[in-house]
Computed example of a mutant assay.
Amino acid sequence: MGDQVRAKKHLGQHFLKDESIAEKISNTLTLEGYEKVLEIGPGMGVLTKYLIKKDIDLVAMDLDSESVTYLEDHFSDTNLQVLEGDFLKFELSDIFGDEAFAITGNFPYNISTQIVFKTLEHKAQIPEFTGMFQKEVAKRICEQEGSKTYGILSVLTQAFYDAEYLFTVPPSVFSPPPKVESGVLRLKRKADFSLPCDEKMFYRVVKTAFQQRRKTLRNSLKSFDLSDKLKEDTIFGQRPEQLSVLQFIALTQKLENDAISTH
């Protein structure tokens, strides 16, 4: 087995080669409220090496069997657990049961947004999430209302987590260098992350609104069968990117109440 793992384009792999940045990413975890950490896409373990020094139970998951073999060889004298698998398809309860865990990593760009959506599905178990994305994706997740890049990902994530954009990483610290800058963020779950409205309905409202983001909500949310009285509400004259997360929650409540009173 050679001493290097080849970066595979189809897996979206860009290996981080800058030690100081690896260390900086490892320190984005606050270690508050969990003892277990899942690292996604460890590659050749440049971030793993700093995570393993912390007082945590660390599991590294990679889809690339070459990386898995490399990590098993190079971390054999540590308590690192290495798993070969696709995070998006993996049954998370098989890793940590129902215990709380954080997620971190230098995420493969081609699945990074899906990683966030899967985290949201398991938010009851994931109090913290940090890691590296394409810069524009990291910025979008953390964006506030009023911006062109504010969208489904921003609203759904920030309904449950406080999102903070931490720092930007240049292409030159990767092998091979990606064509874009990268960005590191931290998501810390809100103290109360239960919504005061139906969660499925909330998701539907947000997705439906942003699918036609240039239209006013009165037009984009027609499929919700709005009563004439509700259509007069001033909120429906707005476009989705003008609404804060709290306003989207309030909007969902209005739609729920409208459905109850009209049917």
Rank of each mutant, 00 (worst) to 15 (best):
M1A: 10
M1Y: 07
M1E: 08
G2W: 08
R6A: 13
A7L: 05
K8F: 07
L11K: 07
L16M: 08
E19S: 07
A22T: 02
E23I: 01
T28G: 01
L29F: 00
T30C: 03
L31D: 07
Y34A: 04
E35R: 08
E39P: 01
I40V: 15
G41S: 06
G43Q: 02
V46A: 09
Y50G: 05
K54V: 01
K54N: 06
K54P: 03
D57E: 15
A60T: 04
M61W: 01
S65Y: 12
E66C: 05
V68S: 01
L71H: 06
E72V: 15
L80A: 04
V82F: 03
F87P: 04
K89H: 12
D98V: 10
A102I: 02
I103R: 01
G105W: 00
Y109P: 03
I111S: 06
T130C: 11
Q134G: 00
Q134S: 08
R140T: 02
E143C: 06
Q144Y: 11
Q144L: 13
E145R: 14
T149W: 15
Y150F: 14
L153T: 07
E164Q: 13
V173C: 06
F174T: 00
P178M: 02
K179M: 07
R186K: 12
K190E: 08
K190L: 15
F193H: 09
M201E: 06
V205P: 09
V206P: 10
K207F: 05
T216W: 00
K222R: 15
K222A: 13
F224M: 05
F224K: 13
F224W: 12
D225H: 12
D225S: 12
L226W: 04
K229I: 12
K231L: 14
T234C: 10
R239S: 11
Q242A: 15
L243E: 05
S244W: 11
V245K: 14
V245L: 09
L246M: 13
F248M: 11
F248H: 04
K254L: 15
I260Y: 02
